[in-house]
């Protein structure tokens, strides 16, 4: 595993492809401390008191938005949520003007979820507050990637040489893209599996082994990451029926048995039980799906702490 960096190189958290393994490690190490705080009776720390964070969400989200909100609040920051259905965006305001308005109110960080790829990069060029990408289209979701890394590290203690199988709709998945780039940097052996219609053309150039039989990907896997299947993809003609998807690509007990005995099963949520994942494995003893949610809060606390305290590690602050 890489040695933790002393600080983050860039102010903004836009994607994991532009970050180094030593920066991932700094965030993961900080998150371990944060996770202890979450499990205390009194969760509140004053570390980010006086800092203001805006969750600017242009797409519906419960898990990520709540996770960021609690992460900020546990550290004592003021957190405001703006969602587009109730904002000036519905009056036709441009993203630039929305960002300038939020900036002018004196916020320190903007957590942004947006349906368009590159929106967080664009935002980072416009305003001074730190931009944390909470998902931009099918491009990147760096905090989800980091919480997945945190979970893998927690259970496996390493990344080097692990066989990681990412199963499902890779084409539309920012989680898949994020994890592929990060896990490759960390020396894992990344496999993807799913219908060819849900694989990006030339995906192998991202450094993955592609399978169209899910069994091949699961064979001997250390980690299985199952992606959500959105039902509207079926209407676009990308797969025939949910029934056929579940039969051929769904991760169930029989298929999971092909993986290593101590396989780690992950899913970024929300799950379609009985479609991409069967309930018995989702709630089974190999599953870390709810653990991921708690890790998500810890990782986001670590990120907010690092970006708002100038990228310095915890012990340097006190």
């Amino acid at each position: 595993m890489a040695k933790a960096a002393v600080s983050l190189r860039q102010r903004d958290i836009l994607d994991l492809a532009s970050m180094e393994p030593s920066e991932y490690e700094l965030i993961l190490k900080t998150a371990e401390e944060m996770k202890k705080l979450i499990n205390r009776d009194i969760k509140k720390a004053p570390t980010l008191r006086g800092k203001a964070i805006v969750n600017l969400f242009f797409e519906a989200s419960t898990r990520t938005r709540t996770s960021f909100e609690l992460a900020g609040k546990y550290l004592g920051a003021d957190v405001i949520n703006i969602s587009t259905s109730t904002s000036s965006v519905t009056k036709g305001e441009s993203l630039r003007d929305t960002l300038l308005t939020v900036e002018a109110m004196g916020v320190d960080a903007i957590v942004m979820r947006h349906p368009a790829e590159g929106a967080a990069h664009y935002a980072s060029q416009i305003v001074k507050p730190v931009i944390i990408n909470a998902g931009d289209g099918a491009h990147a979701h760096p905090t989800q990637g980091l919480l997945d890394l945190f979970t893998i590290k927690q259970y496996k203690g390493r990344f080097e040489g692990l066989k990681v199988a990412i199963v499902g709709d890779v084409l539309h998945s920012r989680v898949a893209r994020t994890n592929i780039s990060a896990l490759n940097k960390l020396g894992a052996d990344v496999h993807v599996a799913g219908p060819s219609t849900l694989m990006p053309r030339e995906v192998e150039q991202l450094g993955v082994t592609v399978h169209h039989r899910v069994e091949e990907a699961l064979e001997g896997a250390d980690v299985v990451d199952v992606l959500r299947i959105q039902l509207e993809r079926q209407k676009k003609g990308l797969f025939p029926t949910p029934r056929e998807y579940a039969r051929i690509f769904g991760v169930n007990a029989a298929r999971l048995a092909l993986a290593k005995e101590d396989v780690l099963l992950m899913h970024p949520g929300p799950m379609n039980r009985g479609l991409e994942i069967s309930p018995d494995v989702a709630y089974g003893d190999r599953s870390a799906i709810t653990e991921e949610v708690q890790n998500g809060v810890a990782v986001r606390m670590a990120i907010l702490f690092l970006v708002l305290m100038g990228g310095k590690p915890l012990e340097a602050i006190d």
């Binding site: 492809a17 053309r201 991202l206």
Partner: peptide, 15 residues
């Protein structure tokens, strides 16, 4: 354009 770059960026590709 649909290709290695669109695969990386997650932008829908035109073949």
């Amino acid at each position: 354009h649909e290709g290695a770059v669109s695969a990386r960026l997650g932008i829908p590709g035109i073949p």
